[in-house]
């Protein structure tokens, strides 16, 4: 395992990785969606998960969190089981997965991120409300804190989800297409936020489907197409042959990749 500090922090050597997946297979109605996924994600990395539609990207993060049952294999989070480390896991689902007409305000949604800390049957404390306010500020939505969530634009809604993930104060984040359908301002705001999280030592896995930007945004890439095609530092993995293996013979994407690789070599 690569550790940034070698001598002064001896405990980092023994710390288990944030996420370790072994031989994970997931099937829907007997049809495998993920097959034998092995993965060890080192701490403090910004990891992009890329692959064609139906490659199992969302399935992978859902199965890693235990949201979907696995047919075989196991997942370890910080060396333990997922259920005993739930508080250390933050989740940003796809924006379309919820009903944005739901009668809650921006503050209410962000406060939900604190529920894991509040505990069963208890009410959020003043501290939880403070954390929620701070996270809303961090994503630049202070003026919208008391607005109903359907009043927001798509990009603002995505930022609400990010603020909620921040409020979870987790160490390992799973984000499902946070860049889908957002405006340029939100896109750069999200990138700044991911960098800030990384600077605090968090590990972040992001499902992403825009290849050209994947190369700029992420430290590491996981190329996925039912199986792991490649996983490693972006500059080692963002290679034409590996991408071709991942995307198969899809022409439009192939030419897009060729363009992206060409840009990289310039």
């Amino acid at each position: 395992m690569i550790t940034p500090h070698s001598a002064p922090l001896p405990q980092t050597q023994s710390q288990p990785p944030p996420l370790e997946i072994h031989d994970l297979t997931v099937a829907y109605h007997q049809r495998p969606v993920l097959w034998g996924v092995d993965l060890v994600v080192p701490a403090g990395q910004l990891v992009g998960i890329v692959g064609p539609n139906g490659a199992g990207k969302s399935t992978l993060i859902k199965a890693a969190m235990g949201l979907l049952p696995a047919a075989s294999g196991w997942v370890k989070v910080f060396g333990g089981s997922v259920s005993e480390n739930l508080r250390r896991i933050g989740y940003v689902p796809q924006r379309e997965s919820v009903d944005w007409d739901f009668p809650v305000s921006v503050h209410d949604v962000v406060l939900m991120g604190r529920y894991g800390h509040v505990g069963l049957m208890r009410r959020p404390t003043a501290h939880d409300h403070d954390v929620a306010r701070r996270c809303i500020e961090e994503v630049g939505l202070v003026a919208f804190a008391n607005r109903q969530i359907s009043d927001l634009s798509g990009g603002q809604q995505q930022r609400v989800f990010l603020a909620r993930a921040l409020a979870q104060e987790s160490d390992l984040y799973f984000m499902d297409e946070p860049f889908a359908g957002v405006d340029a301002a939100t896109e750069s705001a999200i990138i700044a936020l991911l960098q800030a999280l990384k600077a605090r030592g968090k590990t972040i896995l992001v499902v992403h489907h825009d290849l050209p930007t994947a190369r700029e945004y992420f430290d590491m890439l996981l190329l996925l197409n039912m199986r792991v095609v490649a996983f490693g530092p972006t500059e080692q993995v963002f290679k034409y042959d590996l991408l071709q293996q991942t995307y198969g013979g899809r022409l439009t994407i192939l030419s897009e990749m060729a363009e992206a690789v060409r840009q990289q070599s310039q």
Partner: peptide
Amino acid sequence: SFDPGLAFSLG
């Protein structure tokens, strides 16, 4: 009710 996936990740 709002977000079952998030609810799960919150325990």
